[in-house]
Design a protein around this nucleic acid. Structure first.
Length: 808
RNA sequence: GCCCGGGUGGCGGAAUCGGUCAGACGCGGAGGUCUUAAAAACCUCUGUCCCCAAGAGGACGUGUGGGUUCGACUCCCACCCCGGGCACCA
């Protein structure tokens, strides 16, 4: 670099902080813009993913500020969580000490990028003044019956010794440590997100400015399916079970029924029978096998229970099997099996020699096994001849009329399991009293502070459970001896409402002031990684809806626009410490500076897509900044005083076209094309100055250039703004407007084609008529050569762009 | 298997509405200027092929094969490949 970037960066970072430009208050007289980047886990070291994230975010903060918006851009820390706790187990250093040191380190690094935030609103989820409101929120959910405790089979990570939400299990393995996950029964806390399933699903339609991909993932996650539930009687016993099906129209094709191995009825129907032993063995094997093994096997296995159930539609007894391809966690854990219309049932039936009855007539050319498509019903009594939709309606009506079943909607979404047997999280504010049961800690006693412990190692229960001084308390209701809940909350609880807290972060009377939140919310632009497409974004939507229902949030959806950035790769693999392919941004800050680093991130490729890191790429953006520097301080050449010429006017026009291009590119998140537009302008200006620039034109154009550069490479832009004689702070200057008349080209190049191939180009006036364009085309010598002896069949004139002569 | 993305020079990528010889801008590479030398900077060239002394000119070219159109990287159909997500969900 030809200038001292270190010095300039430090100088302007200090000036911006002093100016208070990015410290904002709710002001209903001004249009607001809430710009948020996902708050980071304080790992202590900035990586390129952060740099990309904050570069985009800061660009928007600065751009919208220049556009005159009241821009809220806060920063905080997702500071509870496993990494700090694991570090504490390894080193014995308290997670708080570690976490706070890392926060200090990381916030310093973020400042060095020149990214600006309203630091007065800084929050950290591990601090009592924050998690106190987690607890308050928990109590509100508890009051409404939306938080409940239940015995449930849970996903258990033997390595982390904790419970995982379904969402945190990836391919049967722990999302964090990769260890295989097993099932286990435990008493756990849940949030009743399923109560909101329908709304969460329907409102996806409102999220027009979200990537389609994220909307699809959320839709699939919620997984709504419509069908019917009906009861099946077990023959010869006073027992029955319910099945859920999306294809009640195929009920006459049922040739067997299946219960999940965990189904509570299994023990009862086989007790004392010949089948008991085989069924027990099968159950044990199914429970032992991990989900991975169950799936990997592919072959459908099961055992006959010796019992039959009655098909309510025709009174026919069908054999009941136990098979692990039916899952206890979905629907009722029991199905009616229709092998003619379901491939899984087909596979099972062929293996065990069970009868197959088709109830939908497949097309003549159908060659598959089970037929799942539409067609007229057959072998189905009163449904015969009806097509799928109509048959479904008819049979559901019939089941309801007979009192045998009902229409039902099932969701794949389960309740959100929020308790963790971990130390470094927010304590759940509940006291368990032998007389009163589960009693909420009164609001005025919040926060239930996280006490210090000696031993962080998990032993299947929270480390807090070993701490008598914490556990033993008195019941808030009866005053008798009672015990505190020792589980802590999933950190996704912390992050599902932090964006609301930012609107009023220092409030110690309430979670936030609804009026302030009403001004700032929704978040106008949310920027973060695609990895949060389901978990964090779904939980945030849920909690926002709960707060909306409580009258605290004015909006039902928290994030108006979502942008998910791509990841950064090196040598084809995601940059990560474990792979050892890290390019440390701190090294680049030292060698090339924040502006060059930011610019390279913007230039690298489409923001939404993954990008490969090129070790020389940043050299290019650094060279560009050097060129800008030389140009602005007059090192390329000195301009002269003279009358304006056409060439001067063309340079000005190009500058205005660049203003238009850059503005439109920022608006559509196409930063990777905004930078080349600036580079092209600088190339033009360099040539212009070498050829002898007119002073007034050059000054105007440099001014435009610095304004455009200001959100992208703010340090150099501010320095040069000052050095070119301005006394104002560039960050608060209005964003430049382009002059439409200058932008419009007077003379354009008209393309002349023969049979769609370009054969000549001529300069014409931009407002040329089609007739005139056609005349000029036919007069062109080169066009006439290419027409030759051919007959002109048609002339397509699209002035001022092109004329195409069709020759036969 | 299903659902999303995507496939353009040596590389990252551009082409916003079907219309400026497709390849902007940058990286890398080659040659040159300056210099005792080097670095930096600057200049020229840089899709493939044909043709030409040169200027110029021509053909081909956006994963493959078809189609629509005066005109296709762009739209339609089929297929191949890569990346991601989901996956025994009844």
């Amino acid at each position: 670099m030809i200038y001292d970037h270190q010095k300039i960066e430090a100088k302007w970072q200090e000036r911006w902080a002093e100016s208070g430009v990015f410290e904002v208050e709710a002001d209903p007289s001004r249009p607001k813009f809430y710009n948020l980047t996902m708050y980071p886990y304080p790992s202590g070291a900035l990586h390129q993913g952060h740099v990309r994230n904050y570069t985009y975010g800061d660009l928007l903060t600065r751009y919208m500020t220049m556009r005159g918006y009241n821009v809220l851009s806060p920063m905080g820390w997702d500071s509870f969580g496993l990494p700090a706790e694991n570090a504490a187990i390894a080193t014995g250093v308290h997670p708080r000490v570690n976490t706070e040191a890392q926060i200090a380190r990381m916030s310093e690094q973020i400042r060095r990028l020149g990214a600006m935030y309203d630091w007065r609103r800084e929050l950290a989820s591990h601090k009592p003044d924050y998690y106190r409101w987690d607890q308050w929120l928990f109590l509100k959910l508890f009051e409404q019956g939306l938080a409940y405790k239940a015995e449930a089979p849970v996903n258990w990570c033997p390595n982390d010794q904790t419970v995982l939400a379904n969402e945190q299990v990836v391919d049967g393995h722990c999302e964090r440590c990769g260890h295989e996950v097993i099932r286990r029964k435990l008493s756990q806390w849940f949030f009743r997100i399923t109560d909101y399933a329908e709304r969460l699903l329907n409102d996806i339609e409102k999220l027009e400015h979200w990537p389609e991909r994220v909307r699809t993932m959320q839709r699939n996650w919620i997984g709504r399916s419509e069908g019917a539930t009906f009861t099946m009687r077990v023959e010869g016993l006073d027992a029955s079970f319910e099945v859920f099906t999306t294809r009640p129209d195929t009920i006459f094709g049922m040739t067997f029924a299946v219960l999940a191995p965990e189904h509570p009825l299994v023990d009862e129907i086989v007790a004392g029978t010949e089948a008991e032993e085989a069924v027990r063995a099968y159950q044990e094997q199914a429970a032992k096998a991990s989900e991975i093994e169950r799936l990997a096997e592919g072959e459908k296995t099961g055992v006959f229970t010796g019992r039959h159930a009655i098909n309510p539609a025709n009174g026919r007894p069908v054999p009941i099997y136990v098979a692990d391809y039916v899952l206890m966690g979905y629907g009722t854990g029991a199905i009616m099996a229709v092998p003619g219309q379901d491939q899984r049932d087909w596979d099972f039936a062929t293996r065990y020699g069970i009868e197959i009855i088709r109830t939908v007539q497949p097309p003549d050319d159908f060659e598959g096994e089970a037929y799942v498509g539409d067609g007229p019903a057959i072998n189905s009594d009163f449904l015969d001849g009806l097509h799928m939709a109509e048959a479904k309606e008819r049979i559901i009506q019939w089941l309801e009329d007979q009192g045998l079943g009902r229409r039902e909607v099932q969701y794949r979404l389960r309740d959100w399991l929020i308790s963790r047997q971990r130390y470094w999280g927010c304590p759940i504010p509940i006291v368990s009293c032998p007389d009163c049961g589960l009693v909420p800690v009164p609001e005025d006693q919040l926060p239930v502070e996280l006490p210090d412990v000696q031993d962080y190692a998990p032993k299947g229960r929270s480390p807090l459970a070993a701490l008598d001084s914490f556990v033993q308390t008195t019941c808030p209701s009866c005053g008798g001896p009672a015990q505190r809940e020792t589980d802590t909350m999933d950190t996704f609880v912390d992050s599902s409402w932090y964006f609301l807290r930012f609107t009023d972060a220092r409030n110690d009377e309430a979670i936030f002031d609804p009026e302030k939140a009403a001004y700032w919310m929704p978040v106008d632009q949310y920027i973060g990684g695609i990895e949060h497409a389901v978990l964090h974004l779904l939980y945030s939507r849920f909690i926002t809806k709960v707060l909306y229902d409580m009258g605290l949030s004015a909006v039902e959806e928290p994030f108006e626009r979502l942008f998910t950035q791509g990841m950064i790769r090196l040598g084809g693999a995601k940059m990560s410490k474990s792979k050892g392919n890290i390019v440390d941004p701190l090294d680049l800050l030292a060698s090339h500076g924040a502006d060059a680093l930011r610019l390279y991130h913007l230039f690298m490729g489409p923001p939404a897509e993954d990008a490969d890191w090129d070790e020389h790429g940043i050299d290019g953006t650094a060279r560009f900044l050097d060129r800008v520097w030389r140009l602005a301080i007059g090192q390329v050449g000195e301009p002269v005083e003279r009358e304006e010429t056409d060439a001067d006017r063309e340079v000005l026009a190009e500058a205005h076209r660049t203003v238009k291009k850059v503005t439109e590119d920022i608006e559509r998140f196409a930063f990777n094309t905004a930078i080349p537009a600036l580079m092209t302008l600088v190339n033009t200006l360099t040539d212009y100055v070498r050829a002898g620039a007119r002073r007034q034109t050059l000054d105007t154009v440099i001014e435009l250039l610095l304004l455009l550069l200001s959100p992208m490479a703010p340090h150099i832009a501010h320095e040069l703004w000052e050095r070119t004689g301005h006394t104002s702070l560039l960050a608060t200057e209005p964003w430049p407007e382009w002059d439409p008349e200058l932008v419009a080209r007077e003379v354009v190049t008209l393309i002349l084609q023969v049979n769609g191939k370009v054969r000549d180009r001529i300069d014409v006036s931009a407002d040329i008529s089609p007739e005139e364009a056609e005349r000029l085309a036919l007069e062109s010598e080169r066009i006439r050569e290419w027409i030759g002896d051919g007959e002109v069949r048609k002339v397509i004139a699209r002035p001022p762009r092109l004329v195409n002569v069709v020759v036969g």
